[in-house]
């Protein structure tokens, strides 16, 4: 064992875990072999995580047929944007992008409203059977969504909602996870704030809208990012309910395209980039909120 492993940091420093990066400096600049080995492993895992995505971007910029030569090239030469042009001019990707954006936006807006209202009611109203009802709703987490799909399809068909945005949006407007997330957060808001507003004569909806929602801003962002991403990435239900290619979302369109253009590797990679880039950028800019949603659901659950 070398110094890095044996020397114990002072207890008070260890207790303050966020301050850990300072420990390296506290010990001086001696970097032990353990540190080096650890970072070699971490970089290798990072390579595993990003290599498929880097290759996807690289192949999407190669001339047609270049990706299927041997040995497989890693860098596009010459670099071309022709596949992106084709996707947006000859193929329907612009329309699919719009469909995906409209559907994800509708789901996000409506689920923020429905889930926050229900979460608030479960957290702050007293009524008989409240906790039993909440536990009953939580049991929904054990039901795979696919179990509901066949009856739901028949129901939507009776309502003439098959092949409509509404058919995709309605089942995602309220979710068990969303209600749970909102309730957990609202529980942490002091009752006194609600009571004070009520004493001032504010109506129930006014309290929700002007007192609760502003205080919930962080968790609302978390929920919005979660819902937007999952509806953008959703595949099976849109595949079932959208029967006309004019209504296809990006994942459904991509699945369709990959059946027709199997040999066009570079074109398919460009379509994959267009499909996943929006959510990847959204995650990178708002990852703090997204990751908090996972740990809130995971640790307190």
């Amino acid at each position: 064992m070398t110094a890095a492993g044996v020397v114990n940091p002072p207890v008070e420093l260890r207790a303050a875990r966020p301050a850990r990066p300072a420990l390296g400096r506290a010990r001086g600049l001696a970097v032990g072999w353990r540190t080096v080995l650890l970072h070699v492993v971490l970089v290798a895992i990072a390579g595993f995580a990003v290599a498929p995505l880097l290759w996807m971007v690289s192949a999407s910029l190669m001339p047609s047929g270049a990706a299927t030569t041997y040995p497989p090239p890693l860098i596009p030469h010459p670099l071309t944007w022709v596949h992106y042009h084709e996707l947006f001019s000859r193929l329907d990707v612009a329309r699919e992008l719009r469909n995906s954006a409209v559907i994800a936006a509708l789901i996000t807006a409506s689920s923020l409203l429905c889930n926050s209202m229900a979460g608030y009611a479960f957290a702050k109203f007293q009524f008989p059977g409240r906790d039993r009802l909440f536990r009953l709703v939580l049991l929904g987490l054990f039901i795979p969504p696919q179990v509901a799909m066949l009856p739901l399809f028949i129901l939507l068909r009776q309502l003439h909602l098959v092949n409509s945005y509404a058919g995709v949006v309605l089942p995602s407007m309220a979710t068990v996870f969303g209600i749970f997330l909102m309730r957990q957060y609202v529980l942490g808001i002091p009752d006194e704030l609600v009571d004070a507003a009520r004493v001032d004569g504010a109506g129930e909806f006014r309290i929700y809208w002007s007192v609760i929602l502003p205080l919930c801003a962080p968790v609302l962002v978390t929920l919005a990012v979660f819902v937007f991403m999952s509806s953008w990435n959703d595949f099976m239900w849109p595949l079932i309910v959208l029967t006309d290619s004019a209504k296809y979302t990006l994942p459904v369109g991509l699945a369709n395209l990959s059946g027709e253009h199997v040999k066009d590797t570079e074109l398919m990679m460009a379509a994959a980039v267009v499909t996943l880039l929006p959510v990847l950028l959204l995650f990178i800019s708002l990852q703090r909120f997204y990751i908090r949603g996972i740990t809130m659901g995971g640790v307190k659950g």
Binding site: A4, P21, G24, G32, R34, T35, L38, H39, L42, I45, A46, A49, V50, P52, L53, W55, M56, A59, A67, M229, W232, N233, F235, L250, P251, V252, L254, A255, S258, T265, M268, M269, A271, A272, V273, T275, L276, V279, L280, L282, F283, I284, Q287, Y290, I291
Partner: peptide, 29 residues
């Protein structure tokens, strides 16, 4: 001992948020 913990975490997490259909197509190739 880890430096740049946040950076590694972001990189490891990136595949999670990608669209499953898109990366399934990529992996097929």
């Amino acid at each position: 001992l880890v430096r740049w913990r946040g950076l590694f975490r972001t990189i490891y997490f990136a595949p999670v948020v990608t669209t499953l259909v898109a990366v399934a197509v990529v992996w097929k190739y």
